[in-house]
Design a protein around this nucleic acid. Sequence first.
DNA 1: CGAACAGTTGATCAGGATCAACTCGAGTGG
DNA 2: CCACTCGAGTTGATCCTGATCAACTGTTCG
Lengths: 252, 252
Amino acid sequence: MAMQFLTYLEAYGPLLGDELQAVAKLVRAARRFAAGAEIVEEGQRPSHCSVLVSGHAFRHRTLPDGRRQILSFSVPGDLCDLQGLFLSMDHGVCALSPCEVAFISHADLEAAMDAYPALGRALWRLNLIEAAVFREWLVGVGRRSAYARIAHLLCEVAVRLKDGAVSDGDRLRFPVTQAHLSDALGLSVVHTNRVLQALRSEGVIAMRGGDLLIKDWAGLQAAGEFDAAYLHLGPLMSPGREGVAPASFNQW
Amino acid sequence: MAMQFLTYLEAYGPLLGDELQAVAKLVRAARRFAAGAEIVEEGQRPSHCSVLVSGHAFRHRTLPDGRRQILSFSVPGDLCDLQGLFLSMDHGVCALSPCEVAFISHADLEAAMDAYPALGRALWRLNLIEAAVFREWLVGVGRRSAYARIAHLLCEVAVRLKDGAVSDGDRLRFPVTQAHLSDALGLSVVHTNRVLQALRSEGVIAMRGGDLLIKDWAGLQAAGEFDAAYLHLGPLMSPGREGVAPASFNQW
DNA sequence: CGAACAGTTGATCAGGATCAACTCGAGTGG
DNA sequence: CCACTCGAGTTGATCCTGATCAACTGTTCG
């Protein structure tokens, strides 16, 4: 059972084998969802967290008149409703492809966090990275051209699926339709289609049947003004060290 | 010293007087910033959290060529760089008006969280609400018209400044220029100006010299398709109760 | 008094939306 | 086995929201 989020947690230095074991034991067997099924309904307050074991999903908010904004894409191994631990779900989670989803009950998770404080910090940090991604999307939709936005999204997906190590020729599973891309990027389907064609005819990517081929990684990054820093993949900085204090701070 | 974030924390049920006292004691005396000064620089890793005691600020990301996206507005009492506790700052915080900013060192805060686990949960929840706001902005910039976006932002600011209770005739301090609004909403200054004029001529709001007057609250909400749910102001749901479990969940 | 900035206005332009039609599989059911 | 449907992708034509450019006003402030 792919539990990639455990490896994310591992990136949080202080988290040791014990914690990981403890979390792994909490995971309950998976349930299957068909493509297009809602894994988590908007508005509900779940009693458990959902781990995407296999398949892809997306988080979305749909307005009364049908306009939809996709908020993020979840890849296998992602914890896709961690916010439900403390807040009701202000958006839904929907399966992009057939999915296998495992659960961890909130009660169990809280108990584990009590036993292992470092676990809570690690999950918190996960939420912070999630928020960083929202911010980056906001920058894109607010201030980048359609062309850069699409390229940027593809960069992000590639980096997340390959855990930072992308290179020319990489082929990735990303089962979205152009309509999904449009709703993620605030564009119309028609325009998304045309920009995608441009990207293909420039030999930067190829995309067919839910597979993304990176033909020119450097070119794609340039097109998307992409800098992976916001994904905070790098080695974790130790808390409190090398901090910057305000000039007047250390004197009191 | 206005510490409104303490009242936010209070909304988290389990947090008692002890915790609040403990946090209050950690707050170090304030430093002043002029309007336009960077309170937190993009890229740095602070050794402390900043509490906006008085004045207004905004969080922003500025692209190499000068395009800027404002990510949120901070009102007096806000903790404006809580993410710095676990992540480096991928965006800056800038003073909108002259500000007074107090600090809490990360080390002190971590120690307090160790002593009072509920404190950590409360701050985590604060971050989650922050993320909910980012999502809502994303929906706006991606899927709402300029008119709705502007109205929506004004609604949000009003609700946050009045802590949920807004009514016709309310006058609020919101010292932004039209350029700030533009950069928050992904619009040009000229267009922002025109939409603002529309909103004024329709008798919905008045805005002058950093003061916002709500003339028709219902009208403003309608114009902005505003629903305050995403701000999660309501009474906190108790964790784990009234949860929704997947059909197959409780059987294992 | 002049600079600098915020706001405003008008004219023009363009990125991307919208509308509509058509192609091309992949099912699906008779 | 074929007709049918349905979803996804594609194309062309046209429209419109909002961008851009440029000038001008008013106010504050040194």
